[in-house]
Design a protein around this nucleic acid. Structure first.
Length: 602
DNA sequence: GCCGTTTTCGGCCCGACTGTTTTCAGTCG
């Protein structure tokens, strides 16, 4: 039973409780547990074995014991009894936008649907034939909405499908450029999960500072690639673009921009926790500012501007908003309700690593043909070095893939690498103007048995190795971990690249015992990569957080196959920041001399 | 059902928008 499956199970229980008119706090408790487990770096089944399930925030005695029963017997009798009361057909509907438990149940009941396999198609057919509009509480409009929601669901845009942060950013830039053309726009800013730099983005959120909301909203809903207005009100609107991306706009006057910025950046659970913290101080928070609940007890809201009409303190700046709550400003990347609020209250937020701290990129593929079976890069060594100079780097590692073992003898591989070293050194000595130091490296496949896909005799022609998994992804956790540790045990193997092997939206990572791998890395002075490629962003932010807690050395690389990819570095840095990484956690923030010592001394 | 520098009991974030209503329920963020 994976975390994902458990998360879904608990979400369904929450839905069932909603239908049973259970206490709404019990409903919220299950929802919260579901959310936390979905985003947990550690498997619940492992925690259960260690008797530590209740260490997960949101999992108490009760849910822990149900999960224990689940792991032991494969089912939970109490849950099954709850499910028995309702048609199993209502759960698949919950994945369609606009469907909650009540609407799903009503349709399943009225249309007498019991088959979860076909229910979405059945509802679609009922809507097309006009049956749904006749059901009490539904009308023509809601019937039409259901048809469109199912259509979008079918082409893959269900609630869970997300796009890479890089792609979302490109879309957001165009929308912001369009909004800036409106003469009533004072400023347009990216918010939500994009401002927090979450690796995958569901929809694009933008806030506009304006004195005339309705004019900006009218402008927004005429965006050229809009296909549908999802909703429209006096303080915002949502549209759907031709590429199926949803864009949410919120408008606000400049006086209250700070509180709106805070509210619209999220995350949801950060905001909930922040409001709970404020309540304890007698303050009520909203996107419009801070209200004092107990007027007798005067708080010192020094930075806010009191609006007597609305009895609320308003904030132009987000810094001031947090300040008046007695907190340090919290960088958006940390706003996930994972301890940042507590840390900020006691002034203990980490000083996060920044892109300008990065002194070199060690994982770059050139177009040098060393007869590998993997992809070559597109750019020459000269182009790469020139780009590195522009980025202000002190050093670079060219880490082409190893020559294919299948097509070459050991002697041939040795010669290929010898020749490559000579040519690279020649190029570097002929471009004397450069201040960038070059490490001649190689990205080497780790074979299923943990051996490296390169003969030992070739190693003198390499400064260091990056090792990575490119085959046999389906090994069990134990063997995969052994395989990786065995490869990393080689003195020249210094970096483990794209460590989980995940491809966002395409492939889950393989199973690794992270505790074990992290411990090994610390003991043996190895670095784990944060790969900045937008399809990877691997190590994940959650695992980076685990790694920084243990003081594992990390390295942020781009895995560039083209000079333009070298600009992905900031994406990797965002992942590091989301994992609370400081400059001292990231080994390629070291100066060239110090980095050279670490890389070359085994 | 969870949780704890006002608590092991008594709290639990706050608001917008839509469709079908005639004052609100459901969904969303």
């Amino acid at each position: 039973m994976t975390n994902k499956e458990i998360s879904k199970l608990l979400r369904n229980i929450s839905a069932v409780y909603q239908l049973s008119n259970e206490s709404r706090f019990r409903i919220i408790a299950y929802e919260k547990a579901s959310e936390v487990i979905e985003n947990s770096a550690v498997e619940m089944s492992d925690l259960w074995k260690q008797g530590k399930l209740t260490s997960v925030p949101g999992v108490g005695q009760s849910i822990a014991s149900y999960l224990g029963e689940l792991f032991q017997t494969g089912k939970v009798i109490h849950f099954d009894k709850l499910f028995d009361k309702f048609s199993p057909a209502l759960f698949p509907l919950l994945d369609v936008a606009g469907f909650g438990p009540k609407k799903a149940l009503k349709l399943a009941t009225e249309l007498k649907l019991n088959n979860p396999e076909t229910v979405i198609n059945d509802v679609h057919k009922a809507a097309l034939s006009g049956k749904i509009a006749k059901i009490k509480g539904f009308g023509d409009k809601s019937q039409q909405d259901i048809i469109e929601a199912i259509k979008r669901y079918k082409i893959g845009q269900d609630k869970t499908l997300r796009m890479s942060v890089y792609y979302a950013n490109q879309i957001a830039k165009s929308v912001i450029a369009y909004l800036m053309q409106c003469k009533y726009t004072v400023d347009a800013i990216l918010l939500g999960s994009l401002r927090r730099m979450v690796s995958t983005i569901g929809d694009v959120d933008i806030a506009v500072k304006t004195h005339d909301s309705s004019k900006v909203i009218e402008w927004f809903i005429r965006y050229p690639s809009k296909v549908k207005i999802i909703e429209q009100g006096s303080s915002g609107a949502s549209i759907l673009l031709t590429n199926q991306t949803q864009v949410d706009l919120r408008t606000i006057d400049p006086q209250r921009f700070g509180s709106m910025l805070q509210y619209f950046t999220g995350s949801k659970y950060h905001n909930i926790h922040l409001r709970e913290h404020a309540l304890k101080k007698g303050l009520s928070l909203s996107e419009y500012g801070i209200k004092q609940l107990n007027m007798g007890k005067i708080q010192s809201l020094k930075k806010g501007i009191y609006n007597s009409d609305k009895n609320i303190y308003e904030y132009k700046s987000e810094y001031d908003y947090y300040h008046d709550l007695g907190m340090q400003f919290i960088p958006p990347e940390l706003r996930e309700n994972t301890g940042e609020i507590e840390a900020s209250i006691i002034n203990k937020l980490p000083k996060l690593v920044e892109t300008k701290d990065i002194k070199g990129d060690l994982h770059i593929h050139s177009n040098y043909d060393l007869e590998t079976s993997h992809d070559l890069g597109n750019s020459s060594l000269k182009e790469i070095v020139s780009r590195a100079e522009k980025l202000g780097y002190e050093y670079l590692g060219i880490s082409d893939h190893n020559p294919s073992m299948a097509n070459h003898s050991n002697d041939e591989i040795i010669n290929i690498l010898k020749r490559r070293k000579n040519i690279f050194e020649h190029i570097m000595s002929s471009t004397k103007s450069t201040r960038v130091y070059l490490f001649i490296m190689l990205e080497v496949d780790v074979l299923p048995d943990g051996k490296l896909a390169i003969p030992n005799e070739a190693l003198p022609y390499l400064d260091a190795l990056i090792v990575s998994i490119h085959s046999s992804f389906n090994m069990d956790k134990n063997n995969m971990t052994k395989r990786i540790i065995s490869a990393l045990s080689h003195p020249k193997a210094k970096i483990f690249a794209h460590p989980s092997g995940r491809r966002l939206g395409k492939r889950e990572g393989y199973d690794v015992d992270w505790d074990k791998l992290f411990n090994f890395s610390i003991q043996n002075n190895k670095a784990i990569e944060i790969n900045s490629n937008p399809e990877r962003l691997d190590l994940s932010d959650i695992l980076v957080r685990e790694a920084t807690r243990e003081h594992v050395k990390l390295v942020i690389n781009t895995d560039s196959h083209d000079v333009t990819h070298m600009d992905y570095m900031s994406l990797g840095v965002s992942v590091a920041r989301r994992g609370w990484a400081q400059k001292s956690d990231i080994i390629n923030t070291l100066s060239c001399d110090k980095f050279k010592k670490w890389l070359l001394n085994s």
